[in-house]
């Protein structure tokens, strides 16, 4: 009997634990169980603990709040499609109105997102597109063609139009990076870049240690290397650190896409003369406005429609492969002049 009492005690304990831990999030769930309440806008980013994604979520949240909607921000703890599928299923059960997703895989979310769309949920992708069948529209942070071409233009200017260059990318599965690298290669076919040779595309997997090893290997395997393009936040910062440690500023130029906060040191020291990125807060806001227009049935993601992005202007829906998208402006250039204003922002 004593033993039985122990079990009962344990059960009570567990129940108490359960009861205690629900305090905080409860308001979140209870206020939204009716359909006449504010519309629910969900944003699913690639993974947690990524400042780029945090800023995008910040922009999304502020814009949705301003429009009077309810916000749900979710991301899996690892950047996997499996984690996002789980989250999408949970969002469907909660009967959200719009899902905005930065896809970890363009195709793998299709069945889950199709299920959502069959239940009347509007779907848009942001930052990293999901395929045309699984979305209403894609909000592209910047024109991928411009992102690719602009970096070759920059590198050419940095090294005087001549020499060996290499690319340090994220993982080999990263669709955004792969698309940008394709455009870089197309830009390199131009006559004016005939003296520039792309010697290698290396993959640092967005891991610090691997990116460092890959950068060091690039420098040793190609002693005449003139520049490195790293279109990924971890890669460019790791490459900046290696070039700084080896005292190669001025000899090997570095550019690409990086967070101003991560790159401030290396831009100020001249290791990276300049680099590019867009404002993730604005991308988040644009996603929110598009989500709102979709949710209110003002647009449906058809070609030629106009989307009102409030303070970001009005953009037209254009073609993107089999689907449609809207595009924000060119990537923004960060150099010594402006890096100090931005390093505390994102």
């Amino acid at each position: 009997m004593k033993k039985f009492a122990k079990w009962v005690g344990m059960f009570v304990l567990v129940c108490m634990l359960a009861a205690c831990s629900q305090g905080a999030p409860e308001s979140n769930g209870a206020s939204s169980n009716t359909d006449d309440g504010p519309k629910k806008y969900a944003f699913v980013f690639k993974n947690t603990g990524n400042p780029y994604g945090e800023k995008m979520q910040e922009g999304f949240e502020s814009a949705v709040k301003e429009l009077g909607g309810e916000v749900i921000l979710r991301s899996p703890d690892q950047p996997t499609a499996e984690g996002q599928i789980q989250i999408i299923e949970q969002l469907i059960t909660q009967k959200v109105d719009v899902i905005a997703v930065a896809g970890n895989d363009p195709d793998a979310l299709e069945p889950a997102l199709k299920k959502a769309r069959n239940q009347g949920i509007k779907v848009l992708s942001v930052d990293s597109a999901v395929n045309a069948a699984s979305r209403n529209i894609h909000v592209n942070q910047a024109n991928p063609e411009r992102i690719g071409r602009v970096q070759i233009e920059a590198v050419s200017e940095m090294i005087g139009g001549e020499g060996q260059i290499a690319v340090l990318s994220a993982t080999s599965q990263a669709t955004n990076q792969n698309e940008w690298i394709e455009w870089m290669k197309k830009e390199l076919e131009k006559e004016e870049y005939k003296n520039i040779e792309l010697v290698k595309v290396a993959y640092g997997d967005d891991l610090r240690d691997k990116s460092v090893s890959e950068t060091e290997a690039l420098l040793k395997s190609y002693p005449d290397l003139k520049a490195i393009i790293a279109p990924t936040t971890v890669g460019i910062a790791a490459a900046g650190k290696v070039l700084t440690d080896k005292g190669l500023e001025g000899e090997v130029a570095l550019t690409g896409l990086g967070l101003p906060s991560e790159m401030a040191t290396y831009i100020e020291s001249g290791v990276s003369p300049w680099m590019y990125l867009w404002n993730p807060i604005d991308v988040g806001k644009a996603a929110a406005y598009t989500a709102y227009e979709l949710g209110e049935d003002n647009i449906s993601g058809e070609l030629g429609e106009k989307v009102d992005l409030r303070d970001l202007g009005e953009v037209e829906v254009v073609e993107d492969g089999e689907g449609t998208q809207i595009m924000l402006g060119d990537p923004f250039k960060f150099d010594k002049e402006n890096i100090n204003e931005w390093k505390d922002v994102y």
């Binding site: 059960f11 634990l17 359960a18």
Partner: peptide, 26 residues
């Protein structure tokens, strides 16, 4: 049969289900 690890697990499962239904209407 009665004092087994599995009963404890079953209790936890029940607690999880109660918890789930308490915090979310869905």
């Amino acid at each position: 049969l009665f004092f087994q690890w599995e009963w404890m697990l079953l209790l936890i499962l029940v607690a999880v289900l109660l918890f789930g239904s308490y915090v979310s209407p869905y």
